[in-house]
Design a protein around this nucleic acid. Sequence first.
DNA 1: GAGTGGTCTAGACCACTCG
DNA 2: GAGTGGTCTAGACCACTCG
Lengths: 245, 245
Amino acid sequence: MIRNAKRAPAASLHQRILSDLEHRIVSGQWPPGHRLPFEVDLAESYKVSRMTVNKVLTQMAGAGLIERRRKLGSFVAQPQAQSAILEIHDIETEVRSLNLAYDYRLLEQAKRMASADDIANFGLARKAGVLASRSLHLAGGVPFCLEDRLINLAVVPQAADADFSQTPPGTWLTRQVPWSTAEHTIRAIAADPALARALSIPKHAPCLVVQRRTWNGEGPVTFARFSYPADKHVVVARFTPASST
Amino acid sequence: MIRNAKRAPAASLHQRILSDLEHRIVSGQWPPGHRLPFEVDLAESYKVSRMTVNKVLTQMAGAGLIERRRKLGSFVAQPQAQSAILEIHDIETEVRSLNLAYDYRLLEQAKRMASADDIANFGLARKAGVLASRSLHLAGGVPFCLEDRLINLAVVPQAADADFSQTPPGTWLTRQVPWSTAEHTIRAIAADPALARALSIPKHAPCLVVQRRTWNGEGPVTFARFSYPADKHVVVARFTPASST
DNA sequence: GAGTGGTCTAGACCACTCG
DNA sequence: GAGTGGTCTAGACCACTCG
């Protein structure tokens, strides 16, 4: 019954089947709630083994395009949340991709015990030792982003001896702790006097603030707050159904 | 050589292998650039078939945790961009999840030809007919978000007869065009007089603006701009290596 | 040439879940 | 009980890419 696999020619069978099924869903031909043919029937229609069809359907289920239920079959999902992929780059990379000269200045770096504020922001255990830093990223000689950062010395003890005067803490940390789990929050604020001074913008000027909390298997690694003048930064996120390709 | 698969007990072989390999990478035991054992060796170590290992490695490659090269093997990737998943919900859902009463008011709805501004924002073909609307979402009786929207009548002709006085255009559109590709941008701005009036906030107060452009196989579907008072909205995005689970 | 990943098959057994 | 998806296997052939 499934004919007309007239999607763009794909390298492999399962890619061809994936784009074919995707097209039927995205085009509305198979609306939310529609039951897809069973695996065995799809396998027969496409003249492939059940494994190949299963691979495709498993991928589509992972991407949230369909929902699968034993005995009942596979159904086109109700699109609930738009789930978009946000790519958060290194600030130096970001500045250079704007074709601007990148510069960096360390403003403060100090070891201390976590304050009540730190604990609340960071989700730290009480009384943890942290390395706090504040630094300024410049693009084309103009303040681009103020970075406030805490590093958990319990998880990254080697940070105690790190020197961020040349290397930004984010770059240094990526080398020490390459992979981790993170949560980002993005909000707008009016610049308080200290922030306005640091970024050379008027008091109460709007700023975009991106905060990142990062965990490890061993606990909280770092908390970073990036404050951008409103005209300097836009966060972009893209979404394509079923990811990939 | 791969022993000590002491990760949390997982339902299936490939899940167990996935979390084991993930752990080695995330913990730093296998740093970026490290070559993973070859598929045949992993299969032998874990006492599974090569297909099972291949499934795991394919998934990890898709998630960006490793890079695979024929003849050379699989390598732990250099973490380049933090890639986070952003879930963008319906505004009504969002308001209700804050335990606030949701209300909605249509302010304007008009059919017209796309202006130069529209064309630039939307990526429209020249002279397309659009349905423009402006509406206000309220939470607990207080302005929560101003929505400015354009719908491309060439792609969604049935919008010409739609009535957004009861149903917000986003909700209506999701029913008509359930799946599509989208691009989001998030920025901070100072409220201009019209926005300040609509949201009942002071002039120049900071606002978070989320813009969404949506495409279909047939072309641009809709352009939406959501403007939130800075204190009303935070965008949250989460990231876990290798997606899933 | 040789070794890797990329893909696919035909078959199997099971868990789940419906009626 | 029966039919679905979930998973796994052992084997196969190929494309790619290194030396």
